[in-house]
Structures are given as structure tokens and as C-alpha cells.
Write a protein that binds this DNA or RNA. Structure first.
Lengths: 198, 198
DNA sequence: ATATTATATTACTAATGAGTATTATATTTT
DNA sequence: AAAATATAATACTCATTAGTAATATAATAT
């Protein structure tokens, strides 16, 4: 029978992180509704009332994970845009680079990605934001004459998001493909198409 | 205070269909967990015990809707493959036709599509099946020399499913785009790519 | 007409699982 | 050292909601 009261060396911040990590694992694996508080606290070796020392509710801890994903993604994209200015690649190389980076981020944060990109209510908004960003980039290139002028870049941007969404789920997050390879294939497809020139 | 017992003109089959319809609406709108039996029976003007005359459980009625989607989709695709043999279009026209039909099916069954294609556990399997079908078609065309031989058709098929998935959600199911237009844009993009020939 | 079957409701049970009241021990501050 | 604060567990409450028992009325079969 476990004694109650504060433990030696107890550290709130540490336990909080532990709970967040456990929650990320469980949510990513089972989804929001199928994940019970009892599963999270068990994984973290913490009792249920302790959970409520650190988080207001189940909603709250889930939302915190979603926010982490969203913030890290935004930071990542901003930084990515800055770095790009440095060296000029070919158009193809530049686009490939951008997409590779997104895949790399997802690969490095598989649990948060599952939660923030696929399960959260905010997923919709997040994907829309990415779509808008991509569309702006595409329109810029189109204005510069790199792309056909009769193509609706809105549809292209949405398509690209759809491709990223699906390939991330079916090939990236389970280790079947690497970011570079996926990005290369996608870009070649979108730039040159399937049709044989012969 | 409502009287109990059988009502005049009561018809079980009719009520069953009514409940299915109500459930489809509610599930499509709120998802599985957020939809309560109470919401379904309220919408169908039926009391809760009556619900259990027709369905074993909440799971069961949801599964029945998923099965409806899956069966109708399979039937639809089979029929679609038969009709295709009749007249020979151009390659582009034929592919566009196939994709248009899928979009049309989704448009005609928006609720079942939301449920079976986006919410169900089976969604994953269903999408995989479609991806496999598409891949086989693409490989056939590739063997016939219509497509580049250095392209991985698995990735292309997955990409196409991703595109269909996203555009269906963001543009088709809310009436923003029509099947033909979407299919046309996608096929042109995938066949010829974005790159300006100049 | 009577028995049976199908359809319905009222009023309930019961399981699940989120969240809390109370109390106890360690750490930090004064 | 005493008081205050942070961290912990035991043993609960309570709301929600899926599902049921008991009973009543209409339709159909015998």
C-alpha cells in the first residue's frame, strides 16, 4: 500500500513534462476519445488526482499538445523562409527543399503531428494556413513566368496539401519513406507531369 | 402525456429507414462520439427504447452506414469499369471521366461519404483499396507507353488519393466546385505538370 | 373472437470515466 | 524550529449516456 504525501525529490515541472509525454503517446496511438485519463496516468506512473495538479482537464492537456504542434510548426516555417534567401538554387531544387523541410518536421515530431495535423479540430485551420502559404508562393512563381498562366494555383495548392497529408500518413510516419525521396517524387510529378513526351 | 403502445399505421421498416437517415445526418455533422443516441431519436421523433428495436447498439447503426457507403462505392466502381469498355476516348478523357465519376458519387452521397470516407475506422482500408485500383490502372497505361517509365506509380496513386481526399472535403462536399471541373484540373495537372514550356 | 406478433412508451439500471474532498509528507521560507 | 507551500495518494462523488425491464396498444393470423 503506497504511502501518501510528497515524495523525496519530487519535482512538479518534471512530472508535468512526463504527463505531457505520456499523453502525446496515448493520444497519438488511440485518439482523443479512446484515450482515458487513467491510461495517461498509468503510463506516467502518477495517480489521477496528481494529473489534476498540472492540468485543468483532459481537454486542456490535449489542447496544450495541439498548441505545441502549431507553435513549433509556425516557428519552423518562419525560420525556413529566412534561410531560403541565402543561396539561390534552381526552381525545382528550391521547391523540393521547402517540401522536404515540412516532411522532416513531421518526421521529427510524429506524435505531435498525428495529434495536431490529423486529430485536432484545429487541423482544418492549420492545413488551410499551409495551403494559403503554398498558394502565395506558387502565385509568385507564376507571376515570374515559371509556371503556366492558365493553371488555378488555388487548386494546385490544395492538391499539394492533400498529397502531403496522405503521404505523411501512409509513408512517412511509419518509416516507409524518407523526406527527401518523397519530396523529390512529388515535385517531379507536379512540375513535369506523367505524360510521356514521345 | 403520450400514450404508449403501437401507433396507428406504424411501420417498422419505415421507422428503421427514418432512424438511419437521422443517424447519417447527425454522424456526418458531429462525428461518432459527439453524436448521442438521444440526438438521433430526437431527430427521428422516436423514443430511445424504440431505437433498440431496430439496432443493437450505437456501434451497429454507425457500422451499417459505413457498410452502405462501402457497398455502394464498390458497386459504383464495378459498374463504372464495365461502361468504360464501350467507347474509346483519349487517354486524358478517359482518366478524367473516371475521376469525375468518383467525385460525382461523393457529391450524391455527401453524408455517407463524410462517414465512410473520413470518420470510420474502415476509411483507411477503403482509401487503400482505391489507391490500389488506381495504381493498377496507372501501371497498365505505363506499360502501354503512355507515361514516363521512370515514375513510381505507387506514389502517384497515393498522391491522387490524397488530392481526391482533400478536394472532396474542401471544395466538393460544400458545393464550392463541381465534379467535372475538379477532375479536369487534377488530370491536367498530373498529366502535364506546372512547368511552363517556354 | 382470440392468440400472437409487431410496435410503442414510461420509467428505470448500470457502467464508465471525469473530476474532487480530504489528508499526508516533503521542501522551502521566515 | 515553525509556518507556509508544493506535491502526493486514498477514497470518494457525480454527470453522462448507453442500454433494459415492464407494460401497453395496434395489426395480423388462426
Amino acid at each position: 500500500m503506497g504511502r501518501r504525501g510528497r515524495k523525496k525529490g519530487a519535482d512538479g515541472e518534471k512530472r508535468r513534462r512526463l504527463l505531457l509525454q505520456a499523453a502525446a503517446t496515448e493520444f497519438a496511438l488511440h485518439g482523443y476519445h479512446e484515450t482515458k485519463i487513467s491510461m495517461i496516468v498509468e503510463k506516467a506512473n502518477v495517480t489521477q488526482p496528481s494529473f489534476y495538479l498540472y492540468f485543468q482537464s483532459k481537454e486542456a492537456i490535449f489542447q496544450e499538445l495541439v498548441d505545441m504542434f502549431q507553435q513549433q510548426l509556425i516557428m519552423f516555417i518562419k525560420q525556413s523562409l529566412l534561410e531560403e534567401g541565402l543561396e539561390k538554387h534552381t526552381l525545382e531544387g528550391e521547391i523540393t527543399e521547402r517540401i522536404t523541410r515540412i516532411f522532416t518536421f513531421f518526421q521529427e515530431q510524429p506524435q505531435l503531428t498525428r495529434i495536431g495535423f490529423y486529430m485536432a479540430n484545429e487541423s482544418k485551420v492549420i492545413k488551410n494556413q499551409i495551403a494559403i502559404l503554398i498558394e502565395q508562393n506558387l502565385l509568385e512563381e507564376q507571376r515570374n513566368g515559371y509556371f503556366r498562366s492558365d493553371t488555378d494555383m488555388h487548386t494546385v495548392a490544395e492538391s499539394l496539401v492533400g498529397i502531403i497529408e496522405r503521404l505523411t500518413k501512409t509513408r512517412l510516419l511509419n518509416g516507409l519513406s524518407k523526406p527527401e525521396k518523397l519530396a523529390n517524387e512529388i515535385v517531379r510529378l507536379l512540375l513535369y507531369g506523367l505524360k510521356n513526351e514521345t
